[in-house]
Amino acid sequence: MGFFGKIFSALKKTKDKISEKLSALFSGRRIDDEFFDELEEILISSDISVTTSMEIVDELRERVKRDRISENEGVVAALKEILTQTLEKAEPLEIQTPAVIMVVGVNGVGKTTTIGKLAAMLASGRKSVTIAAADTFRAAASDQLTVWANRADVKIIKSSEGSDPSAVVFDALTSAKAKKTDYTIIDTAGRLHVKSNLMEELKKMSRVVEREYPEANFYKLIVLDATTGQNAVNQIEFFDEAIGIDGIVLTKLDGTAKGGFVVSMCGELEIPVVYVGTGEKLDDISPFDKDEFVEGLF
């Protein structure tokens, strides 16, 4: 069998759902070293970082020994508990009005769509919402956001393509202050976290908010695509260093990827997941539920 053929058959196995792999692993197996090695691989294949996966497995190994767990159900329960506890390390984020929410992230993760859905969700509680179309870089980004603003039935402040995003932020804040808007949501252009000049632009926008509207609660949310791999951790670290990240929105969870990397983020960086996106319809957004997420991994 050729190299590709061999890889393909190897993949057949890993392609199946994690849950299936886990149940296969847990059904009628001796809990030995090989078991833990395989478990580690299963965790990595859900994009939980290599380091975190190793830590989780070590912890599990210890608990199994300490509590003398011998049957599979006990191991599953212990693993779920460890995952939930890791996620709990990050304090949940309560968004209080008047709020300014700046949404950041790399290109193509779903910022604009998330803002549309978020605006609709926040507006449904009889609250006023204004969206600032500060992605002045990508072609037709503000057109896209306008469609979402209409769907969510909220106000939008925009400017022409190529204009200064901070100016759009300024205009939106002026309007929000005058009208006592409950939520001001700022869309920003997608940017790769390694582009220092674009990160400077983001810092400037952040400074404008702090200077112009100090009374508001300022939240900076990063949007992460669930299909992303280990790079997600780099993304959040760079953005966090630049402007300080308060919470995560995990998008595209309706696919086959499970976004396991957030386990590392909650555990190590203590940044909570606030919302999850599960589709392109207006109501395809919901608050993050850690138990549901852990169940989803299985």
Binding site: D47, V106, D225, T227, T228, G229, N231, Q235, A257
Partner: peptide, 14 residues
Amino acid sequence: VDSMTGQDAVNVAD
């Protein structure tokens, strides 16, 4: 394909 894609890349591509 986004080069930042993780383990799921095989499912998608396949």
